[in-house]
């Protein structure tokens, strides 16, 4: 469903010069599974997801979603995905209902079908209280629900969640994770980025640990644990990152 092959992305930064945000990243995600993209801040998770969402263009490598290339068929890719960015960005001067409706219409949904789908979504996500509330007056939880509804309103086969629970309280975060799990059960292919290990353990079927633009480990949770001989995911994560940093330091020193 999602094939990421040798994905590379370079940026130019005033202070740091040329930055390689992603170095030959490879992973695949299948329908009916949640693929977790784990990594500390600055690992390149958001960059990778933005490329999947066709917001950024790759500098090298290939990415295809449902058989469509993110560069050559970007318009088709955007029809296949639901993208929820890291911030709970909503339009300040639109109500929850208007926002979800707007994105449904952008996806070409007919008015009747859209209204029916929205009724169902607003009930299922328990967000009827956001119907007539302007974005500027919504709580963080409300905004997050609207963001989820906006991403899934057109019932896309692929969903991309970028640190969806950051800044949420336990109750809202839990409800959101339940929603994501429910979407998996509907056969969606989900890419979920997070730096919270407990979330990944609880939710993801397969994971990739990303650090400084490189994939350090990839596979099911069991495979990764077995390969690196560490049961605790947080410890494993910490260990991999420390090893990578040590290796980079030694390489830099040798140069």
């Amino acid at each position: 469903m999602i094939h990421v092959h040798e994905l590379t992305k370079c940026f130019s930064d005033f202070r740091r010069g040329q930055i390689v945000a992603l170095k030959g990243v490879i992973f695949h995600a299948r329908p009916g599974e949640i693929f977790g993209l784990l990594g500390p801040n600055g690992a390149g998770k958001t960059t990778a997801l933005r490329i999947l969402g066709t917001v950024l263009r790759p500098s090298g490598g290939r990415v295809s979603i449902n058989g469509f290339d993110v560069v050559a068929d970007s318009a088709e890719v955007r029809r296949q995905i639901g993208f929820m960015s890291a911030n709970t960005a909503v339009y300040d001067r639109m109500t929850g209902w208007e926002m979800v409706e707007y994105f449904g219409r952008l996806h070409g949904m007919q008015r009747d079908a859209l209204a029916e789908r929205m009724e169902m979504l607003f009930n299922r996500l328990k967000m009827n209280d956001t119907r007539d509330v302007l974005g500027a007056k919504m709580s963080t939880g409300m905004k997050q629900k609207v963001s989820v509804a906006r991403a899934v309103v057109h019932d896309p086969p692929v969903l991309i969640f970028d640190e969806a629970t950051s800044g949420l309280d336990v109750l809202v975060a839990r409800a959101l994770l339940e929603t994501v799990a429910e979407l998996r059960s509907q056969g969606k292919c989900i890419v979920y980025s997070t730096h919270i290990m407990r979330e990944a353990e609880k939710l993801c079927d397969r994971i990739a640990i990303l650090h400084r633009g490189s994939v350090l480990a990839e596979g099911t949770l069991e495979e990764v644990r077995r390969r690196h001989g560490e049961e605790d995911l947080e410890e494993l994560f910490f260990q991999l990152i420390m090893e990578h940093d040590q290796r980079s330091l030694e390489e830099a020193f040798c140069r």
Binding site: R50, G53, T54, V55, A75, A89, Y91, G108, S147
Partner: peptide, 14 residues
Amino acid sequence: ERGTLETLLSSPAG
């Protein structure tokens, strides 16, 4: 500033 541009860019709107 509001962060909504990213979402719009990932929608079918070119």
